[in-house]
Design a protein around this nucleic acid. Structure first.
Length: 158
DNA sequence: GCCAACGTTGGC
DNA sequence: GCCAACGTTGGC
């Protein structure tokens, strides 16, 4: 099993949206590095943290989900009415991929970015590397478990 | 809203 | 292949 962190702007798609839908495609990835990771590494059964980016206030990890379908052509690339429409995409030579995710839980509190930065054990996390802008990054099992404990212990360094 | 960092495009 | 110009991401 592998562990991922996936970013979404909550005004686009939030943990509450996923809670309501229970299951959703994860679309709109338009970065080749992320695409390759999605296509070549992300597998059914992998766990992924849901991260709220660009929030203005509570930026951080807000919940947990599971991959339930591996990479398939992202339908939004062919949809001229979508923000994610890509005129250079061609159905016979897919450029962009999506996966499906399933809601597992919303944490009682967000694990804030500032809090993650304070943890020495997380200093190697791809998310925290300077200049990182990838919307999907990989976590080690230790990082994953450590963050889960942070999330589930309300009194821990809030 | 600002801006640093990174990615993409396209002229040459 | 170089690199300037432009676009995007995302924290603050």
């Amino acid at each position: 099993m592998q562990y991922w962190l996936m970013k979404s702007e909550p005004n686009e798609f939030s943990i509450d949206d996923l809670l309501t839908k229970k299951r959703s495609l994860w679309d709109g990835i338009r970065n080749y590095q992320v695409r390759n990771m999605l296509r070549d590494q992300v597998r059914v059964g992998d766990q992924a943290f849901f991260y709220h980016s660009n929030t203005g206030k509570e930026t951080g990890i807000v919940g947990l989900m599971e991959i339930v379908r591996e990479a398939y052509p992202d339908p939004t690339q062919f949809d001229a009415t979508s923000n994610y429409f890509d005129p250079k995409s061609n159905p016979s030579m897919t450029r962009w991929f999506a996966v499906d995710v399933k809601f597992i839980k919303k944490f009682n509190r967000p694990v804030l970015l500032s809090e993650l930065r304070n943890e020495k054990k997380l200093s190697r996390m791809a998310l925290l590397k300077k200049g990182n802008r990838l919307s999907v990054t990989k976590l080690s099992k230790n990082e994953f478990l450590f963050i889960l404990r942070l999330a589930e212990n309300k009194l821990y360094r809030v």
